[in-house]
C-alpha cells in the first residue's frame, strides 16, 4: 500500500512539473515548486515507512522547514531584489 501511495505521489509531482516548466509568470513556477516540495515531504515519510526506518521522519521535518523558507526567500528576493 505504501509503495502504491508513493508511486501516485511521484506521478502527481510530475503533473505539477508541467506548471514549473510552462509558467507563464514566476509566481506560477514558485507555486508549483512549493507544491512539489510538499509532495516530497510526504514521499520522504513514506519511504521511511516502506524501509521501516523512522529516522526518515526527521529528514521530512527538516525538508518541510527548508521548503517553507526557500519559498519565502525566493519571493523576498523577487520583491526586494536583495536578501539582507
Amino acid at each position: 500500500m505504501f509503495d502504491a501511495v508513493a508511486t501516485i505521489i511521484v506521478f502527481a509531482a510530475i503533473l505539477v512539473l508541467y506548471r514549473v516548466i510552462k509558467g507563464p509568470t514566476i509566481y506560477d513556477r514558485v507555486l508549483a515548486a512549493n507544491a512539489i516540495g510538499t509532495k516530497t515531504v510526504v514521499l520522504i515519510a513514506l519511504i521511511g515507512f516502506i524501509y521501516e526506518r523512522p529516522h526518515f521522519l526527521d529528514i521530512a521535518l527538516v525538508y518541510a522547514l527548508i521548503n517553507f523558507i526557500a519559498t519565502i526567500a525566493i519571493l523576498k528576493y523577487q520583491e526586494m531584489g536583495r536578501l539582507d
Binding site: V5, F11, A12, L15, V16, Y18, R19, Y27, V42
Partner: peptide
C-alpha cells in the same frame, strides 16, 4: 489523501491564473 493530492495537482494545471 492520495486522491486530494492528485486533485490538487490537476487543479494547479487546469486553473487559469495564479
Amino acid at each position: 489523501g492520495c486522491f486530494l493530492i492528485v486533485v490538487a495537482s490537476i487543479g494547479i494545471i487546469r486553473f487559469p491564473d495564479v
